[in-house]
Structures are given as structure tokens and as C-alpha cells.
Design a protein around this nucleic acid. Structure first.
Lengths: 158, 158
DNA sequence: CTCGGCCGGTTTCATGTGTGACCATTTGCC
DNA sequence: GGCAAATGGTCACACATGAAACCGGCCGAG
């Protein structure tokens, strides 16, 4: 037995970050399988498409802010989608560095197929929860995300 | 304007898998920074250590089941930890293929430093939630994980 | 006007990861 | 006993990703 007995009061199963990631990984993995196997889409690519579906036209920076994804990750996802002609990239007249991104018809068509599937999957998952539970879950998640965004939690001096 | 107008009823911000991953990614990223910068630990490695802290002795398979991590991922994490002498690997007498894994003194010492930091970080994060909210969150997450594990959700024929 | 800092976006590099093949051992079945 | 299938674990390969360097274009101070 070691000198310093480890902290026996710690239960990884009660540790929120761990639980959160384990759950998110499982959800992600199963959904990713749908995107990937049926449509050859990365999660990053799917997110770009989904946001463009909502906002009509966006710049890469805006997508980055919305999804909180890495700069490079967005860039690469956009690259592939443009190559596959699912989105179009046109120069921004105001700012020559930026590009306007929007769905092409092919992109819309793909989403019209994919979205119902994704929603069905989500519905099937959510059926495990009551309406109240669902609401509580989303509210708690929103609060956490809020807390994370602002204070960066444990903000050590400055 | 495309023929097929895309589904305007879909809001990615309301889409649970997306929200779940966005949140988990943020949490993960910040915590991973702690593990990595201060202790040079991967998340996978941290999980192995944390489980060994609870269970004294485990086999790789057991860790795999507990964490739901990939076979290879566990194997690699264990490899590194053994090299760094944070855990020890001894042959299983019953099954020559398996190995018993346990913390070394160095491993315990490291955990005794790391655990309080991790717990403090979690506490700081959880302070954004009331006790009731916290309970509801964990309960909902447990239910979802349960649903995922069993039915694999949308189990297409078979 | 112009020079330095800032910013949008791309690329390079190192690394962690999943997939699938593979080896050795165990286990079930004949 | 002995052979086939399953199982614990490792390895080779391909790939998505984050960090950081980098390339223009923008913008404010002098």
C-alpha cells in the first residue's frame, strides 16, 4: 500500500466533465456514422451546412463564432464543401479578405434529405425524456455554456 | 433561389446533439488544458488513472468497458503511463493475455495533486447551477446514456 | 500618405484517434 | 485431445484536429 493513499472520495462517474464527454461522444459517434456513411460528411462539414441553412449567407468568421469551432477546422470544412459544390464562395465586396458562403442547389437538396433523418434520430433519442426533463436539461446546459464562455472558470489572476 | 427551399423549421441551436457536443467540447478543452499543460496527460490517460484510483486494480478490458473508450486508445494510454511509471502492469495468472494494472506510488502522488485541482474546477463550473438544476441535469444525462446504450437508437432492421 | 498592428483565412506540422489486420491465448464443441 | 471461433491486446495506416507560422488585405496613428 502506498504511503499516500489516494483520495477515495473521488468518483469519476459523478464527475461532470467526464460524464458530459462520455455522453457527447456516444451521441456524436452514432450521428457521425449517419453523416459519414450516407453522405460522406464530417461533423464540421455538417455544422457548416446546417448554419448556412439557417442564415442564407455567412462568412467563415461568423461560422467560427457560431459553432465555436477552430479557425482551421472551419476553413477545411468549407474547402471540401466548395469542392463538392455543396456551397459557393463569392468575394465580399466590403472586405477583400472575406468570402460570402451560401448553399448551392445541390447543398439544399442534400440538406432536404439529411435534415429529416437527423431530426428523426434526435426525436428518437429525446423520447427517453419527458418534456420537463428536456427543458431542464437544455436550461442547465445553457447556463453552463454561459458560465464557461464568460469567466473561463477559475480565472487565475487576470 | 433554389427550387427546393430548405427546411426553415430547423434550428441548429435547438438541436441536442449539437448543443451537447459544443458544451462538452468547451468543458473538455479547458480541462484538457489543465491536464496537458501541468501534467502532460491526455484525457485518455487521465481517465485510466482516475479509474485505477477507484478500483485499485483493473484490466485493460475493464477500463475499456468503464470508459467506453476504444480498444487501441486504452492500450496506448496504458503504454505511456507504464513508461512514465505512473502505473504498473503485472501478468494475470488466470489469463495469460491480460494484465493487471494498478497505480504506482508516483501515480498516487500525481493524483493527489491533480484530483483537488480537477474537483475545484468542477465546483467552480457547477456553481453556475442550483442544486436542483444539477440533479436534473445528471438525471437527464443518465437517462440519455441509458437509452443510447441499449437500443442504439433508430435500430434499422436487425 | 504610410507604416505598424490587427484581422480573415490558409497551410504546415505534430499529435491523438478509429479502423482493421494481426498475434497469442483461451474456450467451446466434437 | 484437438480444432475452430472468440477474446485480450498491440500494431500499421489513414485521417481529423489544434497550435502556430504565415500571407494578404484592412485600419488607425503619426
Amino acid at each position: 500500500m502506498p504511503d499516500q493513499a489516494p483520495d477515495t472520495t473521488f468518483d469519476l462517474n459523478q464527475f461532470l466533465p467526464y460524464r458530459l464527454n462520455r455522453l457527447a461522444d456516444q451521441v456524436s459517434e452514432q450521428l457521425a456514422h449517419l453523416y459519414e456513411s450516407s453522405y460522406s460528411l464530417t461533423i464540421a462539414q455538417w455544422r457548416v451546412l446546417a448554419w448556412l441553412n439557417q442564415c442564407e449567407v455567412l462568412t467563415a468568421k461568423q461560422i467560427r463564432d457560431a459553432t465555436r469551432m477552430d479557425k482551421a477546422r472551419v476553413s477545411r470544412a468549407v474547402q471540401v464543401l466548395v469542392d463538392r459544390q455543396l456551397i459557393s464562395r463569392s468575394p465580399d465586396q466590403q472586405d477583400q479578405r472575406a468570402h460570402h458562403l451560401r448553399l448551392t442547389e445541390a447543398g439544399c437538396a442534400l440538406l432536404n434529405q439529411l435534415l429529416p433523418e437527423a431530426q428523426a434520430w434526435e426525436a428518437s433519442l429525446l423520447s427517453a425524456l419527458s418534456g420537463a426533463e428536456r427543458g431542464a436539461l437544455l436550461k442547465a446546459m445553457a447556463k453552463l455554456e454561459d458560465a464557461l464562455g464568460q469567466s473561463a472558470v477559475v480565472n487565475p489572476a487576470t
